[in-house]
Amino acid sequence: MAAVALTVDFADPALESAVRSRLDETEAALRTACDSDDDMVDGAAHHLVDAGGKRFRPLVTILSSHFGDPDRAEIVPAAVVCELTHLATLYHDDVMDEAPVRRGAPSANQRWTNTVAILTGDFLFSRASNILADLGPFAVRLQAQTFERLVIGQIHETVGVAAGDDPILHYLSVLADKTGSLIATAAEFGAHYAGADPTVIDALRRFGEQIGVAFQLSDDILDIASESDESGKTPGTDLREGIATLPVLYALRSDDPAEARLRALIARPITDDAEHAEALTLLRASDGMREARQTLRDYADAARHTLAGLPDVPARAALETLTAVVIERTG
């Protein structure tokens, strides 16, 4: 089993060693949680685990545990629950999005069928629930509340913005539910099971949601700004599929006559290769892109402000660095 690559540089060697060890434990436990005696289920359940991933949520859980006692036995299972939940939602998302590729490999729905992909996601949810039962009522309740937000976020994204509502506020609310809520829970799990002070737990939960939204916004920007597959998919995929992410929403709101051609292009899915390339070029230089980058910085600044109120321990510096990484990855 390959070690999990850390997405943040540590100034404290002892913290780095401890976090790396816990991440390796989490990775081993995650793979065990996906095991099944049924070969078909086993292969489908391990499909996305084997494809890799940043393990961002377990990293947040483990770093948050360093505001208390990071050696407590519940921390690794809690980190596994968060990653299993995340993986399960990816199986479901790929069916809803009809995505052919996930993490550089054929998606489960492409390799098998939509039905198998949906049921595999359900299987992973069941394995997460089994672990939660051992963690106790607090974990079960927090997971239920988080799952509610995940589902509501998906419903709001699917139905779309209501007439008269602000599309940008609607989009940011969807990100808070679909992405921010689980990362907030990852932070809360780590701090809670480490026995951290309640005020620290509350701050880390707020940080988790803020950095979660920032992380998704950085993916949105990368999908447009990157010249490579750095975001995990072909650049401009959202644009081609007519998915209005934040840079597009800002550009559509603009009334600048100089951007009329851009608005005409991005108001619909773009299937023509030449128009797709033109739209990408125009969007990269647009005010909408600049506004999206500023919104990303605003969320990151809010996350930094939240961290500033936490005890000055090495884990706080690591979380500050993690926040900077989220910004820097967009260039």
Rank of each mutant, 00 (worst) to 15 (best):
D223H: 03
E209M: 09
F123P: 12
E25L: 05
R253H: 06
D312T: 13
S17A: 07
A214W: 00
E83Y: 00
Q216I: 06
I266F: 04
A105Y: 15
R284T: 14
A176I: 05
I243F: 03
A203F: 08
T330N: 04
A194F: 14
S126Y: 09
P311L: 01
T330K: 02
A184D: 04
D37F: 11
A162S: 14
A274Q: 12
T321N: 12
S129Q: 10
A79N: 03
S65R: 10
L222F: 01
L90N: 09
A302T: 14
V116D: 08
D273A: 15
E83S: 01
P198A: 10
D24V: 12
A105N: 14
G331L: 09
P100R: 05
Q145G: 02
P198D: 10
A315M: 04
D37V: 15
H276M: 13
C82Y: 08
A315Y: 05
P77L: 02
D35G: 02
T61H: 02
D165V: 13
T271N: 15
A14M: 10
A274R: 11
L222N: 01
T271E: 15
S36W: 00
T61I: 10
V4P: 07
R205G: 02
G309Q: 02
E230Y: 02
A279G: 13
G212A: 06
V49Q: 04
Q110V: 14
G288P: 12
A73R: 13
A2S: 14
A105F: 15
C34L: 07
V76R: 07
E83K: 00
A279C: 08
I155Y: 05
G121P: 15
A14W: 02
D220I: 00
P311M: 02
T32W: 00
K54M: 07
F138N: 09
P137T: 15
A317T: 08
A133I: 14
R102D: 06
E328Y: 08
V151M: 11
P167F: 00
G160R: 07
D24P: 11
L249S: 05
L135A: 06
E328N: 10
T245W: 00
N114C: 10
K54N: 01
H170L: 01
K233R: 05
A33Q: 06
L90Y: 02
A5G: 11
T115R: 12
G232Y: 10
P257N: 00
A176Q: 03
T271K: 09
G236A: 07
Q216A: 02
A2T: 15
G208Q: 04
V41D: 12
L310F: 02
T306L: 11
D272N: 10
S64C: 06
L182M: 11
L87S: 07
P58V: 09
E16M: 01
D229H: 06
V49K: 08
V116Y: 06
R31K: 11
G136K: 05
R290A: 07
D256G: 12
H92T: 14
P198F: 04
A163R: 10
G121S: 07
P269W: 00
L172T: 15
D238I: 06
W112T: 13
T85A: 10
D223G: 06
I270Q: 03
V161D: 10
A73F: 00
T185W: 00
V4Q: 03
P198Q: 08
H86M: 02
V95C: 03
L84T: 14
A258E: 11
R316A: 01
A267S: 14
G309N: 13
Y193V: 14
D166F: 07
R72L: 03
S286T: 08
